[in-house]
């Protein structure tokens, strides 16, 4: 192997495997993801997308193989190097919009109280206001999450997640609960932030068109091996790893295939727990 190839990728997996007891969820997962990629993950429900995201977050451990961030094994608990936006419950209901976004800086700079006062507080506030202006929430600084619409809550969650400048940003169906019009706005927002701040993003979605429109790389999770006698014996893996872009249209065959697999799992609203 040459020296250039030994250069660690931002995120690299080798022969990764995840099992719960004797149920194999993910198997034979190997990939390299470089800085600045926008990876969209699609696949039928129950095929391990969410498990994969939990592995990246650190709430679940890998069972075999390796998963490295910047060349180091991924820690097995969540940390500030990996930001996340869930479909819901991503923001703190007891804090105002401003409070939600200043929290990151307060936690970093005040280990004991987790709160800032005086000049430090004003600085944190200014930073937060800048971030909130980027996502279009400058007019709602003092509002609480329950006073915001679903789209605005997700904007807040994105602004909050970006405060720590995470190495990778994980999005778990962030727009799944939003109206189509709002969804379009959010697509524009996330694309702009991704370009401006050179983020590396992993996004789970059920919407294949969304996956094609937003990502630079599309992963399809599916099981390639089936044993009808033992449905748990084989896990899912990345069956397609496609370079995509806004200009490209999803191949009809793929869309049909995903729709077909999706139909076997009518409860498609899985969330991370």
């Amino acid at each position: 192997m040459s020296q250039t190839e030994r250069q660690p990728a931002l995120l690299e997996a080798q022969h990764l495997e995840k099992r719960y007891g004797d149920q194999l969820v993910l198997e034979r997962l190997s990939f390299r993801v470089e800085r600045g990629e926008f990876v969209t993950l699609v696949g039928a429900s129950g095929c391990g997308k969410t498990t994969f995201l939990k592995l990246l977050l650190g709430t679940e451990r890998i069972s075999r193989g390796s998963l490295r961030l910047d060349g180091r094994p991924l820690p097995d608990e969540p940390g500030p190097d990996r930001g996340v936006v869930f479909q819901k419950y991503s923001v703190f209901p007891h804090l105002s919009v401003l409070g939600n976004v200043t929290m990151a800086e307060e936690l970093a700079r005040s280990p004991l109280l987790g709160k800032l006062y005086g000049a430090a507080r004003r600085r944190a506030r200014d930073n937060a206001v800048a971030r909130l202006t980027e996502v279009g929430l400058a007019g709602a600084l003092e509002k609480y999450p329950h006073e915001l619409s679903g789209g605005m809550q997700q904007r807040l969650a994105i602004a909050q997640a970006l405060m720590m400048k995470p190495r990778i940003l994980l999005l778990d169906e962030p727009f799944g609960a939003l109206d189509p019009g709002i969804r379009q706005d959010m697509h524009g927002l996330i694309t702009r932030l991704w370009r401006e701040q050179q983020l590396t993003i992993f996004m789970i979605t059920h919407d294949v068109k969304e996956a094609f429109a937003l990502g630079t790389r599309l992963w399809v999770f599916d099981k390639v091996r089936h044993d009808p006698q033992a449905p748990n014996a084989y896990g899912a893996t990345i069956t397609y790893d496609l370079p995509v872009g806004a200009q490209q249209r999803p191949p009809e065959a793929l869309v049909e295939r995903l729709d077909a697999t999706g139909r076997f799992h009518p409860t498609s609203q899985e969330t991370l727990t």
Binding site: G79, P80, L107, A161
Partner: peptide, 9 residues
């Protein structure tokens, strides 16, 4: 999880 990704101990 969110709090931890914001760096909370």
């Amino acid at each position: 999880i969110k709090a931890q990704t914001l760096g909370a101990n």
